[in-house]
Structure formats: C-alpha cells, structure tokens
Amino acid sequence: MSLLKVERVHKSYNGLQVLKNVSLDVQAGERHVLIGPNGAGKTTLFHCMTGTLPIDEGVVTVNGRQISGLPPYTAVRVGMARTFQKNNLFDNLTVEENLHLAIAACKPYRFHFFKPFYKYTDLLEEAEQLLKQWDLWERRACVVNQLSYGEQRLLELLLALASKPRLLLLDEPTSGMSPAETAQTTRLMQSMPRSITLLVIEHDMDVVFSIADRITVLHHGEVFLSGAPEEIRGDERVKEIYFGGGAPLYAEA
C-alpha cells in the first residue's frame, strides 16, 4: 500500500524550473532514500510535499488524502513530520521546552489558555519518556544553543518524532556530524519501528546503503532512476551524475 504519492509535481522559482514532472511512490513501512547532486531539487521536493512551498502543478497525497494546496501546518495532521537540513530549533529555549512545544502541537488542548502548561501531566510524561529513550534526559534543562552540534541534530529528529508521525521526512539527518555521530544516527534510523515510514535525503553513501529499501535519484529536477539499492549501486549513469560527466565536478560538496 502506498502511503505517500507524489504525482507529476512541477515547481519553478521565477522561471527557473526546479522540479519537472516528479512522481514518487513511497510504500508504508518503506525506507526510501532520495539522492542526487546539489541543486537537484531534493529539499525543494520536501518543501513542496509539506506545503511549505506551493506547487505549480501536480498532486501530493498522504494515505489517500490530498495535502497539496493545504497550509503547511496541516501536514502534521495527516501524520507527516519533517526535519530540516539546517538545525531549525528554538535556540533560546531548553531541550525540554522544545520538546514540550513539539508534543503539545498534536494535543487537543494546544489552544487552551487557562491552565498552566505544567499541569498537563500526560505531556510531561511523554516528554520524559522520549528524552530518556534518546539519551537527552541529562541535558533536558540546557538551553539549545549550549548543546553540541550532534545533540542539536538529535533534538531536530526528536521534535519531528514527537508528533508520532507515520511518515517521517528527514533532510540530511547526518549532515555535519562526526563519523561516530553518523554511525549512531544510522543505528537510530535502522532501529525505528516499521510503523514509521522514512523518506530520507542523504549524501553519505554508507548511510544510504545501510538503511535504504528503495532509492530514487533526482537529477536536474527530474526523477532519473528509482529502484532497489543493488540496481542503483550497479548503475554507471548514477556514478556519472555524482562524479562527473553530466554534472559539474564540484556539484558534490
């Protein structure tokens, strides 16, 4: 059963066509990885799927419900959550406060205004559980801008997980991480239950091949190839896109 369906999506910025007729089908439970050189339109595709950017043409459906054309905050309501390529956190709040905001976003009482936050015990317990599970419990009272980069990256992921998504979009979860942190994040992605479907943008090929069920290659805003990891690994044209030939050499940072 396909959970996320992207059909014939077009997107251009001021006449520059960034996405051309992109179609993507992500099955429930799948670990789908999106690769492609810089400027291929991967992050733009994420923005278009979550509604952060309006799309010019095409349809995006999650679990049969059309979400393209709806305001971005509705993405979470259909079970879709995302992380950002650059850490996008509440820098002046503590780890715990960050998480509280993320959890409260999906609670029916998010709009209540007469009871202090700390009296919603279910919220506090949920946050405690998540923080303990993810080894951030010790750091809960730290303000985000005092955390190490790796910890911030982890929190970025945690905020997305707080909404209990069925579909998680991860935009370069390991970018800027040390090898050890990358390995840890890879293990985290591998250990996520299959009830969460992953769509990941990733550049590190070791990470890509250790998590992917399916890989889609995006090139110049078009889907170049989509298939099982073995197919992609063996494909000469994909190597060419990444390391020369079709794309300029400096494309890969």
């Binding site: 952060t52 509705t74 993405a75 509440f90």
Partner: peptide, 17 residues
C-alpha cells in the same frame, strides 16, 4: 507557550503543526 514559540521560530512552529 505556543505564542512564545512562534516568536522564537515561526517556521519550526508551522512544521510542528
């Protein structure tokens, strides 16, 4: 708290729903 979160980082608040 939501209002304060928006002042801190509106784009993240939208992404959180």
């Amino acid at each position: 708290k939501g209002v304060r979160g928006i002042k801190e980082n509106e784009s993240r608040m939208t992404a959180l729903g």
